[in-house]
Design a protein around this nucleic acid. Structure first.
Lengths: 212, 212
DNA sequence: GTCTATAATCGGATAGAC
DNA sequence: GTCTATCCGATTATAGAC
């Protein structure tokens, strides 16, 4: 590389580095305090930059919030959907579903950042409908599609309406996470995770589950 | 009644009337703007009382918010659960479940106040865990219990794990409302409501649904 | 592009009259 | 118990130096 390119790159690095710092700070604050509960002062402090720098990069508070949520929705999309795609597609439903359900629950129930993200998106979905739609587009839709494809192509059992069935599965798991973890219902309405998964598998592929 | 009682009653009425006004104003504001996004000034204006009156009744902003959410959770409990209890308990699952699902979806998907309430409780569940628990106790738990009882006592089909099965049903319906209405996914991931209900009924009681 | 300092406003909460 | 008027800290956003 020559000197000019290095200069340009380091400038670019500096820009991105600041933006990255701001994202990190904003992440902490918005996930914990929500949109209205977060102050730009604390974001600046948490990010280690001045407020003016944030306003230069993102225009205003709303711009920062939107950029952050969209970014998170993409990041979670990669982690969540992409990592599950390979898991399906081969085994019979009783095996594949059990594995899928376990992986989804493993990842989401322990990932406090993810749980806080869900709280944030749902909580702000009335005031930021576009963000909610981005979330559905990046996480809800691909999840349903991948599972629908599996249920459609798999050759072990006949499924009348694969997409609606995929929604039963995902809905059951999502509601389980919502009730137990997000709404803190673990002690009030306890339910072992394996009972949910067994029941789900039994319902979807009753022929294949023996006397378990 | 004598004069004294009348005086006491009218005083009581005045107190309760003010409290009721405050609740109404707070309802509008908190449901639309969330906890941090709501100002006591606007609550006072919306309620038609002065701020000092609110502070006299509820101590501080948090006290008002907690009282309001608990009150709403009880009100929704009465409307929701009590009205559905009678609906089950008699018919065979294919009929009873279809009717239950339709009533739940009818009521929740058009009730903007209820949808906003869900957004609020989930959005604040990280900062107000006790309110989330109250919500689960008053709405989630009774819903699961009523359906579990029905699935347990009904004599038409054998259900291995009624409580887990109840959660599949409720989870599917709740997730449907969440994705389509609360997260505004109607256009992104459209799904006819009857397909969901048919699929659910098919899964729960396959023997009883004919060639529908 | 980034900082410090500041403007302009709004927030929760209260004192004191009635 | 309720109101009006007010305190004062916190908030979003920007101006101006570097």
């Amino acid at each position: 590389m020559n000197g000019v390119e290095q200069t340009e790159l380091s400038q670019l690095d500096t820009i991105c580095e600041k933006a990255e710092q701001i994202f990190e700070g904003a992440l902490q604050e918005f996930l914990v305090h929500g949109y209205a509960g977060t102050s730009m002062d604390r974001v600046a402090t948490s990010a280690g930059v001045s407020k003016a720098t944030i306003y230069n990069h993102f225009g205003d508070k709303e711009g920062l919030f939107i950029a952050l949520v969209k970014r998170l929705a993409q990041k979670k999309y990669q982690i969540f959907v992409e990592s599950h795609k390979a898991e399906l597609m081969q085994a019979e439903p009783a095996i594949a579903l059990r594995k899928l359900a376990n992986t989804i629950l493993d990842h989401s129930m322990q990932d406090q950042e993810y749980l806080a993200f869900i709280r944030l998106v749902i909580g702000e979905s009335g005031r930021f409908p576009e963000l909610a739609k981005t979330f559905v587009h990046n996480l809800g839709k691909p999840g349903i599609q991948v599972l629908t494809e599996y249920l459609t192509n798999q050759r072990y059992i006949m499924i009348r309406d694969p997409e609606a069935t995929a929604r039963v599965i995902i809905g059951t798991l999502a509601h389980y996470v919502l009730l137990q973890e997000i709404l803190q219902g673990k002690e009030i309405v306890p339910m072992e995770r394996d009972r949910m998964i067994n029941t789900l598998v039994d319902l979807i592929s009753p022929n294949l589950t023996s006397a378990s």
